[in-house]
Structure formats: C-alpha cells, structure tokens
Amino acid sequence: MKKLSLTLLLTIAIIIAPTQRSHAIVWVVVKAAIKKVIIAIDLGIQKQQNKVIWLQNAQKTLENYMSKLKLDEISDWSEKQKAQYQKYFDELRNVKLLISYYQRIKDITQKETRIINEYKRAWNLLKNDTHFTAKELDYMEKVYNGILDETVKNIDQLTMVINSLQTQMTDEKRLEIIDKTSGKVDENYMDLLLFNRQNAMLSLQRAADEADINRVKSIYSLK
C-alpha cells in the first residue's frame, strides 16, 4: 500500500508540471499503478475462489453426513454443532460476496486502463497535428492533465476498497464507494472521448483541401 501511495503521489506531482515529457512519464506511471491494482485483484479473486471451493466441499461433506443421520439424531445435535454448520454457510456467503467485490473493482480498473490508452493515442495524434497552435495544444494538455488527475483519484478509491475487504467496513459502504467510483470512471471516460472527438472535428474543419480532409479522417478514424 505504501509503495502504491508513493506511486500515486509521484503521479500527481508530475501532472502539475505541464510539459510534453511529463505526459510520457504520467502515462507510464499511472498505467503501472493500474497494472498493480489489476494484479492484486486477480490474486485476490484466485485466493477467494480457492476458498469457495474448499468451503463448498466442506458444505457437501456436512450435507452428506446430515442426510445419513436419523431424525432423532439430528434433534440431539448440540448447539455448538449447529453453530459450526451454520458457520460454513455464512463463510461461503461472505467469500462469494468478496469475489463479486473483486470482480467489480477489476472491471472498473480495466476501464481506467482504457482511459490511459485512449489518452495516449489521442495525444500522440494531436501534438503532431499542424492544424493546432502551440497555445491550443497547451490548453489540450491542461485538460488531459485534469482527466489523468481524476484517474489517479479513482485508483486511490479502488485501492481503499481493496484494503477495506480486510477490515470492518460495512458492505453498504463498500458498495457506495464502488458505485460512486464506477460512475466517476464512466464519466471520465466519456469526457475524454468527447474531448478527443471535438479536437478531431476541429482539425477536420481546418483541413485545407480534399487530400488534407481525407488524411485527417484517416488519422482520427472519422467517417
């Protein structure tokens, strides 16, 4: 967690300095942070799934044992045995819930990765587009920095939820954070796509002739 926090702080510090070199570094650092989160989630899912298999096997064994008992023997069960049996069901339910959390967080994190990839693709095109002035590119850079800053904040929220799976945070609170982060990521992604398209259309409007128009359409995948 400390290493990831340092990575996020480094990312934020880099974002503050709006230079072309910083964009390349930001992309590498943020994507590395996202990759760490995804790997952690994959390991978490695998670990919890293994636990589910073990618990299901234990549950099956207990059920088989119960099916062989006579009714009078079942009625003689001690409270401790009943509690132990119930414990398996409760644990199985909790572990399955954790897996659903992990999967949702992974889905959100992969959206973050798409944001980074889309940002890199668009910025590489824009900074080499002669239809834009240096001042316009500087403005675009600031907008992208803002989008990347939000990406870092979302990663931080996801990391907090991952860590909370080992704490006493309530399920309601976890779901609230996950839902809120998911909404922000979707909004962030749509803002990025809209900004990219606006810039592409502006470049198309400034195309000098038919050949230039076709070139811009091809570069930005416009129809």
Results as ranks from 00 to 15, higher is better:
residue 59 Q to P: 11
residue 62 L to N: 11
residue 64 N to R: 06
residue 66 M to I: 14
residue 66 M to V: 13
residue 67 S to A: 14
residue 67 S to T: 12
residue 68 K to C: 08
residue 68 K to R: 15
residue 69 L to Y: 02
residue 70 K to G: 15
residue 70 K to Y: 07
residue 70 K to E: 13
residue 71 L to A: 15
residue 71 L to H: 11
residue 72 D to F: 10
residue 74 I to F: 05
residue 75 S to Y: 06
residue 75 S to L: 14
residue 76 D to T: 08
residue 79 E to I: 13
residue 79 E to N: 13
residue 81 Q to T: 15
residue 85 Y to V: 14
residue 85 Y to T: 15
residue 86 Q to Y: 07
residue 87 K to N: 06
residue 89 F to L: 09
residue 89 F to N: 12
residue 92 L to N: 08
residue 93 R to M: 04
residue 95 V to Y: 05
residue 97 L to D: 14
residue 98 L to F: 02
residue 99 I to N: 02
residue 99 I to H: 01
residue 102 Y to L: 08
residue 103 Q to G: 00
residue 107 D to T: 14
residue 108 I to P: 02
residue 110 Q to L: 14
residue 111 K to R: 09
residue 112 E to W: 01
residue 114 R to Y: 01
residue 118 E to Q: 12
residue 119 Y to F: 06
residue 119 Y to P: 02
residue 120 K to N: 10
residue 121 R to S: 10
residue 122 A to H: 04
residue 123 W to T: 01
residue 124 N to P: 00
residue 124 N to Q: 08
residue 125 L to T: 08
residue 125 L to M: 09
residue 126 L to A: 12
residue 129 D to H: 04
residue 131 H to F: 11
residue 136 E to S: 13
residue 136 E to D: 11
residue 137 L to D: 02
residue 138 D to H: 10
residue 139 Y to I: 10
residue 141 E to V: 09
residue 141 E to T: 12
residue 142 K to Q: 05
residue 143 V to E: 05
residue 148 L to G: 14
residue 149 D to Y: 11
residue 149 D to H: 09
residue 153 K to N: 05
residue 157 Q to K: 14
residue 157 Q to N: 14
residue 157 Q to W: 00
residue 158 L to C: 06
residue 159 T to D: 08
residue 159 T to K: 06
residue 161 V to G: 02
